[in-house]
């Protein structure tokens, strides 16, 4: 069971309070009605599925109820950061460097 830092509760909480909500930073296109099939495929189906650091969404569903974003390494399952929904992607290199020195 992972331990996840909720940026709203400002605490690490056990994974079973959370629900994973897929890849982060996939914005819903503005002109949905005019979206091509290709663009829809890219938006709705194609996923990074990276081996390494991924940006992903979680919801603290059995906690504060908020959606937020996380950077996690999918090889080690370690979190590099969590941050509030709507905030921009943090700089990955800086995060990695920071984790590298503190570990």
């Amino acid at each position: 069971m992972l331990l996840i830092h909720c940026p709203y509760c400002a605490e690490e909480r056990p994974e079973i309070e959370f629900r994973h909500a897929g890849e982060a930073h996939i914005a819903r296109p503005d002109a949905m009605a005019d979206l091509s099939e290709e663009a829809f495929q890219g938006y709705f189906f194609i996923r990074d599925n990276r081996k390494g650091e991924v940006f992903e969404r979680w919801r603290h569903i059995h906690g504060c109820g908020r959606f937020f974003n996380a950077v996690r390494n999918t090889i080690t399952d370690k979190f590099l950061a969590t941050y509030e929904a709507g905030k921009p992607k943090p700089d990955l290199d800086a995060l990695k460097a920071q984790k590298g020195t503190s570990a």
């Binding site: 992972l2 629900r19 994973h20 991924v54 992903e56 999918t74 080690t76 399952d77």
Partner: peptide, 8 residues
């Protein structure tokens, strides 16, 4: 529930 390559 989360994606992972960790085999655990």
């Amino acid at each position: 529930q989360y994606t992972s390559y960790s085999q655990t």
